[in-house]
Simulated scan of single mutants.
Amino acid sequence: MSSSMSPSRRQLLLGAGAAALAASSVAGAAAQSSSGAAMGLAGKSILITGSSSGFGRLGAEHYARLGAKVFATMRNLPRPEADELRTLAEEENLDITVIEIDITSDEQVEAGVAEAEAAAGGALDVLINNAGMAMSGPIEVQDLEATKLMFDTNVFGAQRMIRAALPAMRDAGRGQIFNVTSQLGRLIIPGLGQYSPTKFALEALSEQLAYETVDKGIEVTIIQPGGYPTEIWQNAAVNSADLKERSRDPLIAAYPQLTAGMGDSGNGGGNTDPMDIPRTIAEIIMMPTGQRPLRKAVHPVATPQVPINEVSAEQQLAMLGASGYGPWLRAVLKN
Protein backbone atom coordinates (compact mmCIF):
# COMPACT_ATOMS: atom_id res chain seq x y z
CA MET A 1 0.00 0.00 0.00
CA SER A 2 1.55 3.30 -1.02
CA SER A 3 1.91 6.15 1.41
CA SER A 4 -0.12 8.44 -0.86
CA MET A 5 -3.13 6.22 -0.29
CA SER A 6 -2.60 5.83 3.44
CA PRO A 7 -5.33 7.14 5.75
CA SER A 8 -4.34 9.54 8.50
CA ARG A 9 -4.37 8.51 12.14
CA ARG A 10 -7.48 10.60 12.69
CA GLN A 11 -9.22 8.87 9.78
CA LEU A 12 -8.25 5.45 11.11
CA LEU A 13 -9.47 6.27 14.60
CA LEU A 14 -12.66 8.03 13.61
CA GLY A 15 -13.40 5.36 11.02
CA ALA A 16 -13.21 2.57 13.56
CA GLY A 17 -16.47 1.00 14.62
CA ALA A 18 -18.49 3.51 12.59
CA ALA A 19 -21.81 2.03 13.60
CA ALA A 20 -20.95 2.09 17.29
CA LEU A 21 -19.58 5.60 17.09
CA ALA A 22 -22.36 7.20 15.07
CA ALA A 23 -24.23 8.52 18.07
CA SER A 24 -21.38 9.32 20.44
CA SER A 25 -18.04 9.95 18.76
CA VAL A 26 -19.07 12.88 16.58
CA ALA A 27 -20.69 14.70 19.45
CA GLY A 28 -17.69 14.03 21.68
CA ALA A 29 -15.23 15.26 19.07
CA ALA A 30 -17.24 18.44 18.51
CA ALA A 31 -17.39 19.18 22.22
CA GLN A 32 -13.67 18.55 22.58
CA SER A 33 -12.74 20.84 19.72
CA SER A 34 -14.99 23.64 20.94
CA SER A 35 -13.82 23.75 24.52
CA GLY A 36 -10.47 21.93 24.49
CA ALA A 37 -8.67 21.53 27.77
CA ALA A 38 -11.35 23.58 29.56
CA MET A 39 -13.52 20.43 29.48
CA GLY A 40 -11.24 18.81 32.02
CA LEU A 41 -12.03 15.12 32.32
CA ALA A 42 -15.79 15.41 32.91
CA GLY A 43 -17.61 12.40 31.57
CA LYS A 44 -14.50 10.22 31.36
CA SER A 45 -14.39 6.85 33.11
CA ILE A 46 -10.84 5.99 34.17
CA LEU A 47 -9.56 2.78 35.76
CA ILE A 48 -6.11 2.85 37.40
CA THR A 49 -4.17 -0.11 38.75
CA GLY A 50 -1.86 0.23 41.74
CA SER A 51 -3.81 3.07 43.36
CA SER A 52 -2.75 2.50 46.96
CA SER A 53 0.26 4.81 46.62
CA GLY A 54 2.56 6.69 44.26
CA PHE A 55 1.48 7.65 40.76
CA GLY A 56 -1.71 5.61 41.08
CA ARG A 57 -2.96 7.26 44.27
CA LEU A 58 -2.01 10.76 43.09
CA GLY A 59 -3.61 10.06 39.74
CA ALA A 60 -6.90 8.87 41.25
CA GLU A 61 -7.24 12.14 43.13
CA HIS A 62 -6.08 14.31 40.22
CA TYR A 63 -8.37 12.82 37.57
CA ALA A 64 -11.36 12.90 39.92
CA ARG A 65 -10.73 16.57 40.72
CA LEU A 66 -10.79 17.20 36.98
CA GLY A 67 -14.24 15.64 36.80
CA ALA A 68 -13.54 12.03 35.88
CA LYS A 69 -15.33 8.97 37.21
CA VAL A 70 -12.38 7.11 38.70
CA PHE A 71 -12.04 3.44 39.54
CA ALA A 72 -9.05 3.21 41.86
CA THR A 73 -7.93 -0.40 42.09
CA MET A 74 -5.61 -2.02 44.59
CA ARG A 75 -4.99 -5.45 46.04
CA ASN A 76 -5.47 -6.92 49.51
CA LEU A 77 -8.65 -5.12 50.55
CA PRO A 78 -9.58 -4.09 53.15
CA ARG A 79 -6.58 -1.84 53.81
CA PRO A 80 -6.03 1.64 55.30
CA GLU A 81 -5.10 3.18 51.93
CA ALA A 82 -8.51 2.28 50.54
CA ASP A 83 -10.29 3.75 53.56
CA GLU A 84 -8.26 6.96 53.26
CA LEU A 85 -9.14 7.33 49.59
CA ARG A 86 -12.84 6.72 50.22
CA THR A 87 -12.81 9.31 53.02
CA LEU A 88 -11.08 11.84 50.77
CA ALA A 89 -13.61 11.22 48.01
CA GLU A 90 -16.50 11.77 50.41
CA GLU A 91 -14.99 14.94 51.88
CA GLU A 92 -14.27 16.49 48.47
CA ASN A 93 -17.31 15.02 46.70
CA LEU A 94 -15.09 13.18 44.22
CA ASP A 95 -16.35 10.33 42.05
CA ILE A 96 -13.88 7.66 43.16
CA THR A 97 -14.78 4.00 43.55
CA VAL A 98 -12.23 1.66 45.12
CA ILE A 99 -12.21 -1.82 43.57
CA GLU A 100 -10.09 -4.77 44.63
CA ILE A 101 -7.85 -5.99 41.81
CA ASP A 102 -4.68 -7.98 42.24
CA ILE A 103 -3.32 -7.81 38.71
CA THR A 104 -1.66 -11.22 39.13
CA SER A 105 -5.11 -12.82 39.56
CA ASP A 106 -7.12 -13.68 36.44
CA GLU A 107 -10.30 -13.87 38.49
CA GLN A 108 -9.88 -10.50 40.22
CA VAL A 109 -8.96 -8.76 36.99
CA GLU A 110 -12.04 -10.08 35.17
CA ALA A 111 -14.36 -9.33 38.08
CA GLY A 112 -12.90 -5.89 38.78
CA VAL A 113 -13.06 -4.68 35.19
CA ALA A 114 -16.60 -6.02 34.85
CA GLU A 115 -17.61 -4.15 38.00
CA ALA A 116 -16.11 -0.91 36.67
CA GLU A 117 -17.76 -1.30 33.26
CA ALA A 118 -21.13 -1.92 34.91
CA ALA A 119 -20.76 1.21 37.02
CA ALA A 120 -19.58 3.23 34.01
CA GLY A 121 -22.49 2.06 31.91
CA GLY A 122 -20.29 0.49 29.26
CA ALA A 123 -16.72 0.54 28.03
CA LEU A 124 -14.08 2.32 30.06
CA ASP A 125 -12.80 5.48 28.41
CA VAL A 126 -9.31 5.08 29.86
CA LEU A 127 -7.28 2.22 31.32
CA ILE A 128 -4.07 3.16 33.12
CA ASN A 129 -1.76 0.21 33.79
CA ASN A 130 0.28 1.77 36.56
CA ALA A 131 0.91 -1.07 39.02
CA GLY A 132 4.46 -2.35 39.05
CA MET A 133 7.35 -3.49 41.19
CA ALA A 134 11.15 -3.51 41.30
CA MET A 135 13.81 -5.79 42.76
CA SER A 136 17.56 -5.38 42.64
CA GLY A 137 20.38 -7.88 42.17
CA PRO A 138 22.28 -9.32 39.20
CA ILE A 139 20.45 -11.49 36.70
CA GLU A 140 22.14 -14.67 37.96
CA VAL A 141 20.91 -13.91 41.46
CA GLN A 142 17.33 -13.44 40.24
CA ASP A 143 15.89 -16.87 40.92
CA LEU A 144 12.75 -18.08 39.16
CA GLU A 145 10.58 -17.01 42.08
CA ALA A 146 11.76 -13.41 41.68
CA THR A 147 11.70 -13.56 37.89
CA LYS A 148 8.16 -14.93 37.72
CA LEU A 149 6.91 -12.37 40.24
CA MET A 150 8.44 -9.46 38.32
CA PHE A 151 7.06 -10.55 34.95
CA ASP A 152 3.69 -11.50 36.42
CA THR A 153 3.36 -8.02 37.90
CA ASN A 154 4.99 -5.74 35.34
CA VAL A 155 4.05 -7.51 32.10
CA PHE A 156 1.41 -10.21 32.55
CA GLY A 157 -0.59 -7.97 34.89
CA ALA A 158 -0.88 -5.31 32.21
CA GLN A 159 -1.79 -7.98 29.65
CA ARG A 160 -4.56 -9.30 31.90
CA MET A 161 -6.00 -5.81 32.29
CA ILE A 162 -5.76 -5.08 28.56
CA ARG A 163 -7.53 -8.30 27.60
CA ALA A 164 -10.28 -7.62 30.13
CA ALA A 165 -10.93 -4.02 29.04
CA LEU A 166 -10.41 -4.26 25.26
CA PRO A 167 -13.57 -6.15 24.20
CA ALA A 168 -15.92 -3.41 25.40
CA MET A 169 -13.61 -0.71 24.01
CA ARG A 170 -13.59 -2.41 20.62
CA ASP A 171 -17.36 -2.73 20.63
CA ALA A 172 -17.66 0.96 21.46
CA GLY A 173 -15.06 1.92 18.85
CA ARG A 174 -13.12 4.07 21.30
CA GLY A 175 -10.73 3.97 24.24
CA GLN A 176 -7.34 4.93 25.60
CA ILE A 177 -4.76 2.69 27.24
CA PHE A 178 -1.78 4.05 29.15
CA ASN A 179 1.04 1.71 30.14
CA VAL A 180 3.52 3.11 32.64
CA THR A 181 6.98 1.78 31.85
CA SER A 182 10.23 3.59 32.73
CA GLN A 183 13.21 5.23 31.10
CA LEU A 184 14.77 1.89 32.09
CA GLY A 185 12.49 0.29 29.55
CA ARG A 186 14.89 1.76 26.99
CA LEU A 187 18.22 1.85 28.88
CA ILE A 188 19.97 -0.45 31.35
CA ILE A 189 21.44 0.12 34.81
CA PRO A 190 23.47 -2.95 35.88
CA GLY A 191 22.29 -4.66 39.04
CA LEU A 192 18.58 -3.90 38.77
CA GLY A 193 17.74 -7.47 37.96
CA GLN A 194 14.60 -8.14 35.97
CA TYR A 195 13.29 -4.58 36.20
CA SER A 196 14.55 -3.42 32.81
CA PRO A 197 13.71 -6.73 31.09
CA THR A 198 10.09 -6.42 32.24
CA LYS A 199 9.87 -2.78 31.24
CA PHE A 200 11.45 -3.48 27.83
CA ALA A 201 8.80 -6.17 27.37
CA LEU A 202 5.99 -3.80 28.34
CA GLU A 203 7.34 -1.22 25.89
CA ALA A 204 7.19 -3.76 23.05
CA LEU A 205 3.77 -5.04 24.08
CA SER A 206 2.43 -1.49 24.15
CA GLU A 207 3.79 -0.50 20.75
CA GLN A 208 2.49 -3.65 19.12
CA LEU A 209 -0.92 -3.10 20.71
CA ALA A 210 -0.97 0.47 19.41
CA TYR A 211 -0.51 -0.71 15.81
CA GLU A 212 -3.10 -3.45 16.15
CA THR A 213 -5.84 -1.27 17.64
CA VAL A 214 -5.39 2.11 15.92
CA ASP A 215 -8.00 1.23 13.29
CA LYS A 216 -10.40 0.18 16.05
CA GLY A 217 -10.59 3.64 17.60
CA ILE A 218 -8.24 2.81 20.48
CA GLU A 219 -5.10 4.80 21.28
CA VAL A 220 -2.14 3.56 23.32
CA THR A 221 0.39 5.78 25.10
CA ILE A 222 3.54 4.61 26.88
CA ILE A 223 4.49 6.80 29.85
CA GLN A 224 8.24 6.64 30.56
CA PRO A 225 8.99 8.13 34.00
CA GLY A 226 12.49 8.89 35.17
CA GLY A 227 13.27 8.60 38.89
CA TYR A 228 10.57 9.78 41.31
CA PRO A 229 10.31 9.38 45.11
CA THR A 230 7.48 6.86 45.38
CA GLU A 231 6.95 3.75 47.49
CA ILE A 232 8.39 1.52 44.78
CA TRP A 233 11.85 2.04 46.30
CA GLN A 234 10.84 0.97 49.80
CA ASN A 235 8.97 -2.04 48.44
CA ALA A 236 11.95 -2.92 46.24
CA ALA A 237 14.23 -2.90 49.31
CA VAL A 238 12.01 -5.43 51.09
CA ASN A 239 11.77 -7.72 48.05
CA SER A 240 15.50 -7.46 47.38
CA ALA A 241 16.35 -8.27 50.99
CA ASP A 242 14.17 -11.40 50.81
CA LEU A 243 15.87 -12.44 47.57
CA LYS A 244 19.33 -11.90 49.05
CA GLU A 245 18.42 -13.89 52.14
CA ARG A 246 17.40 -16.96 50.17
CA SER A 247 20.30 -16.77 47.70
CA ARG A 248 23.40 -18.92 48.12
CA ASP A 249 26.39 -17.13 49.65
CA PRO A 250 28.81 -18.01 46.80
CA LEU A 251 26.39 -16.49 44.31
CA ILE A 252 26.11 -13.26 46.30
CA ALA A 253 29.90 -13.17 46.69
CA ALA A 254 30.40 -13.55 42.93
CA TYR A 255 28.97 -10.05 42.36
CA PRO A 256 30.14 -8.01 45.37
CA GLN A 257 29.55 -4.58 43.83
CA LEU A 258 26.04 -5.45 42.69
CA THR A 259 24.84 -7.35 45.74
CA ALA A 260 26.25 -5.24 48.59
CA GLY A 261 23.29 -2.86 48.54
CA MET A 262 20.53 -5.41 48.01
CA GLY A 263 17.86 -4.65 50.60
CA ASP A 264 19.08 -1.15 51.37
CA SER A 265 16.31 1.43 51.36
CA GLY A 266 16.95 4.34 49.05
CA ASN A 267 15.23 7.14 47.22
CA GLY A 268 15.76 6.83 43.50
CA GLY A 269 13.70 9.90 42.73
CA GLY A 270 15.46 12.65 44.64
CA ASN A 271 13.21 15.67 45.17
CA THR A 272 11.27 15.39 41.90
CA ASP A 273 7.47 15.79 41.98
CA PRO A 274 5.54 12.54 41.37
CA MET A 275 2.56 14.64 40.30
CA ASP A 276 4.37 15.08 36.97
CA ILE A 277 2.99 11.69 35.91
CA PRO A 278 -0.75 12.19 36.56
CA ARG A 279 -0.57 15.74 35.18
CA THR A 280 1.00 14.44 31.98
CA ILE A 281 -1.53 11.62 31.63
CA ALA A 282 -4.43 14.03 32.15
CA GLU A 283 -3.03 16.39 29.51
CA ILE A 284 -2.76 13.53 27.01
CA ILE A 285 -6.31 12.33 27.75
CA MET A 286 -7.54 15.85 26.96
CA MET A 287 -5.70 15.99 23.64
CA PRO A 288 -7.78 15.65 20.46
CA THR A 289 -8.27 12.15 19.11
CA GLY A 290 -5.49 11.19 16.73
CA GLN A 291 -2.92 13.58 18.20
CA ARG A 292 -1.86 11.65 21.28
CA PRO A 293 1.74 10.40 21.33
CA LEU A 294 2.79 6.76 21.41
CA ARG A 295 5.55 7.53 23.92
CA LYS A 296 5.99 10.31 26.46
CA ALA A 297 9.18 10.68 28.51
CA VAL A 298 8.48 12.40 31.83
CA HIS A 299 11.15 13.88 34.10
CA PRO A 300 12.22 17.46 34.84
CA VAL A 301 15.89 16.73 34.13
CA ALA A 302 16.78 13.32 32.70
CA THR A 303 15.08 11.99 29.55
CA PRO A 304 17.89 9.98 27.90
CA GLN A 305 15.35 7.71 26.23
CA VAL A 306 14.05 10.42 23.89
CA PRO A 307 16.65 9.94 21.13
CA ILE A 308 16.14 6.18 21.39
CA ASN A 309 12.40 6.69 20.94
CA GLU A 310 13.07 8.82 17.86
CA VAL A 311 15.50 6.39 16.25
CA SER A 312 13.19 3.47 17.02
CA ALA A 313 10.29 5.17 15.23
CA GLU A 314 12.49 6.03 12.24
CA GLN A 315 13.75 2.48 11.89
CA GLN A 316 10.33 0.95 12.40
CA LEU A 317 9.01 3.06 9.52
CA ALA A 318 12.07 2.31 7.41
CA MET A 319 11.46 -1.41 7.85
CA LEU A 320 7.69 -1.57 7.38
CA GLY A 321 6.52 1.85 6.23
CA ALA A 322 6.13 0.77 2.61
CA SER A 323 4.42 -2.50 3.49
CA GLY A 324 0.78 -3.21 4.12
CA TYR A 325 1.41 -2.35 7.77
CA GLY A 326 2.54 1.16 6.79
CA PRO A 327 -0.76 2.95 7.41
CA TRP A 328 -0.97 1.57 10.95
CA LEU A 329 2.64 2.50 11.71
CA ARG A 330 2.33 6.02 10.32
CA ALA A 331 -0.93 6.55 12.16
CA VAL A 332 0.71 5.64 15.47
CA LEU A 333 4.21 7.07 15.05
CA LYS A 334 3.49 10.45 13.49
CA ASN A 335 2.91 12.17 16.86
Rank of each mutant, 00 (worst) to 15 (best):
K44T: 05
A38P: 02
S35C: 03
A30Y: 00
S24A: 11
A42F: 03
A31Y: 00
G43W: 14
S45R: 01
G36H: 10
G28P: 01
A29H: 14
Q32Y: 03
I48P: 03
I46E: 07
A30D: 02
G36K: 08
A37D: 14
V26G: 15
A38Y: 00
S52C: 03
Q32K: 12
G28K: 06
A29L: 13
L41C: 06
L41G: 09
A27M: 11
K44W: 11
S35V: 02
G54R: 11
G36V: 00
A42C: 04
A38W: 01
A29I: 09
I48L: 15
G40W: 05
S34T: 09
A38G: 00
G40H: 05
A37C: 00
G36E: 14
G36Q: 12
I48S: 04
S51C: 15
A42M: 04
A27T: 11
L41N: 06
M39V: 03
S25R: 15
G28H: 09
L47G: 10
G54M: 09
G54K: 03
S52G: 15
G54V: 06
Q32W: 01
G43V: 12
G40R: 08
T49I: 03
G50N: 06
Q32T: 02
M39N: 15
S53N: 11
G54Y: 03
A31V: 01
K44R: 15
I48V: 15
G50C: 04
S33K: 14
G43P: 06
V26P: 00
A37E: 12
S34A: 15
G50A: 04
A27E: 15
S53T: 14
L47V: 08
A27D: 13
Q32V: 01
I48W: 08
V26H: 10
A30S: 02
S24D: 10
S33L: 14
L41A: 08
G50H: 07
S53Q: 11
I46R: 13
G28L: 04
I48C: 05
T49M: 04
S33W: 05
T49K: 06
A27L: 13
G43T: 10
S51T: 07
S52P: 01
S35T: 08
M39F: 02
G28E: 15
